[in-house]
Amino acid sequence: MDTAQKEVLFGLYDDEEVLLDAVRKAKGDHLEIMDVFTPFPVHGLDPALGLEESRLHIAGFIYGAIGTLFAFGFMTWVFTRDWPIIFGGKPYWSVPAFIPITFELTVLFSAIGMTVTFFTICGMWPGVNNPTLDDRITDDKFCIAFNTNGQSKTEVDRLKSFFKETGASEVNTKVI
């Protein structure tokens, strides 16, 4: 999110189905939604908003692959170049014995990498205080927000009537 102050007009809905209808209507009316906030993930909201599929899992795959290569490569280097040890009459480069650790590190790299990426791209870290519009959004309200910076009164009125038509239970403004 950019740091400049924004004037936000937002409506709160009581039910996710009403919200979904409202989002679809907004798209149909070519209103530019700044954001939608919900207390839980609403099924069908992403396509309604036109959000692209998250590419987080691709990042996860890449981190995992790095883990695989690192673990396997490192053990190979240790046991064939750096300090070969004979154990149990097995060859130095004993692939089956490398698999458990390779697997664990694949998972570890992928999980840590993905979680860190997730929090970073969402701008979330311990102690971060992102501005919220309404405390009840994490409870039972479903919110559509519009950025009204520099918008004329007629435009704002149009948004207000949109909220009224689509069944929002409350309409408020806030500067964040």
């Binding site: 906030f37 992403d46 959000l51 997730f118 870290w125 971060v128 992102n130």
Partner: peptide, 14 residues
């Protein structure tokens, strides 16, 4: 962590 419940965040969260 500054969670707001944005639609995009929920999508990534899932």
């Amino acid at each position: 962590f500054g969670w707001t419940g944005r639609a995009k965040h929920w999508q990534r969260f899932e």
